Amino acid sequence: MNLSSYLEQHKSIRDEINWIQSNLTTVKVEEHAEEIALHINQLSGKLKIHLMNEDKFLYPSLIANPDMAIKQMAIDYQNEMGDLQERFKSFKDKYNVKSKLLEKKESFVEEAKVVICAIEDRILKEEKEIYLFI
């Protein structure tokens, strides 16, 4: 299994997150709503590809590991990611177009901070824990 591919995907996800974070004020949302929506959709696509790769390759190989601790960790990670994936999908569906962003600027800014923090925490956790077993 190629760890560099997962790390490259994380970098690409972080790039989208960083761009969105740099525009998390109501004034910037008004000025850049169309671009923000584009980056939300790009982030969604990148997350979808990353999660598909993990579900198809990473987790099955770790679940097949004879070490029960590694196997259980992989199962736990997979379950946690399902929750985060649903939270992000809900967020994306609420704010994936300019008009939705402009309609709910304040709630977008607050929700984006929470969702982005959860994604960043997950990436760090993967890199510091689960990727050690690849």
Results as ranks from 00 to 15, higher is better:
Asn2Phe: 09
Asn2Trp: 01
Leu3Cys: 11
Ser4Leu: 14
Leu7Lys: 12
Glu8Tyr: 10
Lys11Pro: 05
Arg14Tyr: 06
Arg14Trp: 05
Asp15Ala: 12
Asn18Ser: 11
Trp19Asn: 02
Trp19Ile: 11
Gln21Tyr: 03
Leu24Met: 10
Thr25Leu: 04
Thr26Gln: 03
Lys28Gln: 14
Val29Gly: 07
Glu30Asp: 12
Glu30Arg: 09
Glu30Gln: 14
Glu31Ile: 08
His32Ile: 01
Ala33Phe: 06
Ala33His: 09
Leu38Tyr: 13
His39Arg: 14
Gln42Leu: 15
Gly45Gln: 10
Leu47Ser: 00
Lys48Ala: 10
Ile49Gln: 09
His50Glu: 00
Leu51Gln: 10
Leu51Ser: 01
Leu51Asn: 06
Asn53Glu: 11
Asn53Phe: 09
Asn53His: 13
Asp55Thr: 05
Phe57Asn: 07
Leu58Cys: 07
Leu58Gln: 01
Leu58Pro: 03
Pro60Ile: 04
Ser61Asp: 13
Leu62His: 01
Ile63Asn: 01
Ile63Val: 05
Ala64Ile: 01
Asn65Thr: 02
Pro66Val: 08
Asp67His: 03
Asp67Trp: 00
Met68Asn: 12
Ile70Lys: 03
Lys71Ser: 06
Lys71Arg: 15
Lys71Leu: 02
Gln72Asp: 10
Gln72Pro: 06
Met73Asn: 08
Ala74Asp: 08
Ala74Pro: 09
Ala74Glu: 09
Ala74Asn: 04
Ile75Tyr: 12
Asp76Ser: 13
Asp76Glu: 11
Asn79Lys: 15
Met81Asn: 12
Gly82Cys: 07
Asp83Tyr: 08
Asp83Gln: 14
Gln85Arg: 12
Gln85Gly: 00
Gln85Leu: 05
Gln85Ser: 09
Arg87Gln: 12
Phe88Leu: 02
Lys89Tyr: 09
Ser90Cys: 12
Ser90Glu: 13
Ser90Arg: 13
Lys94Asn: 14
Lys94Arg: 13
Lys94Ala: 15
Tyr95Lys: 08
Asn96Ile: 02
Val97Pro: 03
Val97Thr: 11
Lys98His: 07
Ser99Ile: 06
Leu101Thr: 07
Leu101Arg: 05
Leu102Pro: 06
Leu102Ala: 11
Glu103Gln: 15
Lys104Cys: 08
Lys104His: 14
Lys105Phe: 04
Glu106Leu: 15
Ser107Pro: 08
Glu110Val: 12
Glu111Thr: 10
Ala112Gln: 04
Ala112Asn: 00
Val114Tyr: 03
Ile116His: 00
Cys117Lys: 15
Cys117Arg: 14
Ala118Lys: 12
Asp121Ile: 02
Arg122Cys: 07
Ile123Leu: 09
Lys125Asn: 13
Glu126Phe: 05
Glu126Arg: 00
Glu127Leu: 04
Lys128Leu: 13
Lys128Asn: 15
Lys128Glu: 15
Ile130His: 06
Ile130Glu: 00
Tyr131Trp: 10
